[in-house]
Amino acid sequence: MSRIDDTFARLTAEGRTAFVSFIMAGDPDQAKCQEVLEGLPGAGVDIIELGMPFTDPMADGPAIQLAGQRALEAGMTLSRVLDMVRAFRVKDATTPIVLMGYYNPVYAMGVEAFLTAASDAGVDGLIIVDLPPEEDAELCLPAQEVGIDFIRLSTPTTDDKRLPAVVKNTSGFVYYVSITGITGAATANAAQVAPDVARIKAAANLPVCVGFGIKTPEGAAEMAKVADGVVVGSAIVERIANGDSTADVLAFVKSLTDAAHGV
């Protein structure tokens, strides 16, 4: 079983919801980001999404756009993102890492070269925003062949007719984008999201994590009641943007994970 499957199996046994955190690799610089990354499991994070910075993040709001710009200005590249994962894996063999971003940097490295390097570094899954099921042959199927999960985004515009195609080659979990819009914009409503989560679970037979629009411990706690996992990104990234110390960033993350875990 993969680290992602193991994680959900363990959490299910414990009756807990997964907390998934997003940070941008290399934000504000590689060293500080590595500190935060390595502190996330201790702050209660179950699955880590690590952003691969890109100049043109079309699905992201200002917080994550700026995080990507900071990272790129500080010299982050895709191969350095993989270096960060490799360094993390030396210290943590169990917490899944999912790389999230856009296709072009991966395509520029070359799909095969990227997958080999990602697999060696200890990457568990990929979320690539601009690769819908129509483009599965590009990266989704090759990734799954080397044992890397390809986690698909499902959205409020994904209707019943389309849902089977969306979940077909999805593995690990399904990421439900709870709002139509960009990251960190509107606030998600747990009651509205619940039926969608149920619908996707039935179609996919996979855990469903909910993200986009969850910003506070209260929001995380509410969403944790209706989903298998809760994703928070922009709210954490904003702390990093404010120049908070690693300890302060991790304390904020802890407040979110405690809320999601019902502590």
């Binding site: 079309m58 699905a59 296709y103 925003v129 601009d130 690769l131 819908p132 129509e134 483009e135 698909r152 985004l153 499902s154 959205t155 409020p156 515009t157 994904t158 209707d159 389309r162 969306v166 984008v177 139509t180």
Partner: peptide
Amino acid sequence: GGRFVSETLMPL
């Protein structure tokens, strides 16, 4: 060419 867009836009 192709259709390299986020899932939200795909149905549209």
